[in-house]
Simulated assay, not measured.
Amino acid sequence: MIFIIFTTSAVDMIRYMEEEWETLIASIETGELPPWDEIKEPHFPPRPERAAQLRAVGKAADQAGWLVKIWPMLKSAISIGSGVFSVAVPKLRFYLGPDVQLRSLGFLTSEAHVASVYDPSDLNLFKVSSQDLIEYLDVVKEDNVSSIVPPIGKHYEIVCTTRDGLWRYRLGDIVEIAGFDPTDGSPIIRYFGRRNVITWMAGGALTEQHITAAILAVQDTLAPIVEFTAIIDSHSGIPTLAYLVEVHGELHPEATKAPMKLHGELCRLNEEFDPQRMQVPTIRVLEPGTFGEYRQWRIEVTNSGSGQAKVPVLMWDNSAREWMLARVRRELTADPNTGALQG
Rank of each mutant, 00 (worst) to 15 (best):
F6Y: 15
S9N: 12
A10G: 12
I14K: 07
R15V: 01
R15Y: 10
M17T: 03
T23E: 15
L24N: 03
A26V: 00
E32H: 13
L33F: 11
P34Q: 11
E38T: 09
F44R: 02
P45H: 11
E49G: 04
A51L: 11
Q53E: 15
V57A: 10
K59E: 10
K59T: 11
D62V: 02
D62T: 08
Q63D: 06
V68Q: 15
K75S: 14
S76V: 07
S82E: 06
S82A: 14
S82C: 08
G83C: 08
S86T: 06
S86K: 12
A88V: 03
V89F: 07
P90N: 05
K91I: 13
L92M: 11
L92G: 02
L92P: 08
P98I: 05
S104L: 08
S104D: 15
G106I: 00
L108H: 09
E111L: 05
V114T: 01
A115E: 00
A115S: 00
Y118L: 00
N124D: 15
K127E: 03
V128F: 00
Q131H: 12
E142K: 13
S146H: 08
S147K: 02
I148L: 13
V149K: 12
P150K: 10
K154H: 12
I158K: 04
V159M: 01
T161G: 03
T162W: 01
L166G: 02
L166M: 10
V175S: 03
E176V: 09
F180A: 10
D184T: 04
S186Q: 09
S186L: 03
I188R: 10
I188K: 10
I188G: 04
N196R: 15
I198D: 12
T199R: 12
W200Y: 11
A202R: 09
G204E: 01
A205D: 04
A213E: 15
L216G: 01
L222R: 09
L222P: 03
E227L: 07
E227G: 04
D233W: 06
H235R: 14
S236P: 04
G237M: 06
I238K: 14
A242G: 05
Y243H: 06
V245E: 07
E250S: 12
A255E: 09
P259R: 03
L262T: 02
E271K: 13
P281T: 06
P281S: 05
R284F: 01
V285E: 11
E287Y: 01
P288H: 09
G289L: 01
Q296R: 15
N303G: 09
G305M: 03
A309Y: 07
P312V: 02
W316M: 08
S319I: 07
R327F: 05
V328D: 00
R329G: 07
R330S: 11
T333H: 07
T338K: 07
G343N: 09
G343T: 05
